[in-house]
């Protein structure tokens, strides 16, 4: 499999008030960004627990992005 075909699974924990809104704004203003991100909206980045991240890797994520 070549590198171009490989589509990484990226899990994103996005804060409702910051990164999630930023992602929304990026969509509204039609910025292009990679479609590999699977988003989980949390009400605050402080809600993200280390076990969430490890669980994400267990469930098969290749990378985990946390955005506050």
């Amino acid at each position: 499999m070549s590198k171009e075909e490989y589509k990484p699974k990226i899990l994103g924990f996005l804060c409702n008030w910051c990164c999630y809104a930023a992602a929304d704004a990026a969509g509204v203003s039609r910025y292009q960004y990679p479609p590999n991100l699977r988003t989980i909206r949390v009400m605050c980045t402080g809600r993200v627990d280390p076990s969430f991240v490890l669980r994400g890797f267990v469930e098969g994520a290749d990378g985990i992005f946390t955005g506050g």
Binding site: C19, A22, A26, P34, T45, G63, F65, T66, G67
Partner: peptide, 18 residues
């Protein structure tokens, strides 16, 4: 694993980070 910051008004920064 990455922890980054981007405010609601920083869509270009979010796009860059992702």
């Amino acid at each position: 694993f990455s922890l980054q910051w981007a405010s609601a008004a920083e869509a270009p920064r979010f796009v860059k980070l992702i």
